[in-house]
Computed example of a mutant assay.
Amino acid sequence: MNDHPSTSDSSTQITLDKLDAAMSGVWLVISKGSQHIWNLDAMTDTRVPGAASLSGTFALDGRPIPIARVERWPRVGATSLFFFDDPTETARYEHYRQSSRIKSITRVAEIQEDGVPPKLRVDTPPEGTIPGSLKLYKAL
């Protein structure tokens, strides 16, 4: 029995309603204003703000941030909340990121093409994907 039933499951694309601590893989989480790549194998989040982001841009956007702990895992229709250590003073400061309302969660696949380093891609970019944003992500 699958504890995480997919809302869409084909040979090329898997979408879920939620992520949790028991899962693995790399996932594109699209919220109302931004996109996040949740790498559950490396436990990192990479944020790409969109034009509709009410928060605007953050200093660490576009770079994987190691997740220290997750308070609310991504779930469609809700927000996520995680904490991470300050990259310059890890022992002194902890920061958090809360997403806007999540629209979709889609598995991102790693591919290898004739000697070219693997790149992350979404086989069929979900509706609402920020154009060109997945170009930021290389194999994690």
Rank of each mutant, 00 (worst) to 15 (best):
H36S: 13
D9V: 04
V116S: 00
T79P: 05
T12N: 09
W73Y: 11
P131K: 05
D86T: 03
S53H: 03
V29M: 06
S10I: 13
Y137C: 15
A21T: 07
Q112P: 00
K135Q: 00
G115S: 05
R47H: 03
R101S: 08
I37E: 13
T44H: 14
I111S: 08
D17Q: 00
R97K: 02
A22Q: 11
S24V: 03
R69F: 15
D45T: 13
A51V: 14
L140P: 00
A59L: 01
A139S: 10
S10P: 00
A109V: 15
L140C: 09
S31F: 05
S10C: 01
S100P: 08
R107M: 12
K135V: 05
E94R: 09
H4D: 03
K32P: 01
S11P: 02
A109G: 06
G62W: 01
I37V: 15
E94S: 07
Q35F: 07
L134C: 11
R107T: 10
P5D: 06
W27I: 04
E71A: 12
M23Y: 02
S53N: 07
D9Y: 04
K18Q: 05
V122G: 02
L28F: 07
S53Q: 02
D114I: 10
T79F: 01
V29F: 05
S133Q: 13
R92C: 02
V29Q: 11
S133Y: 07
S34R: 13
Q35I: 07
G33N: 06
I105T: 01
A42K: 15
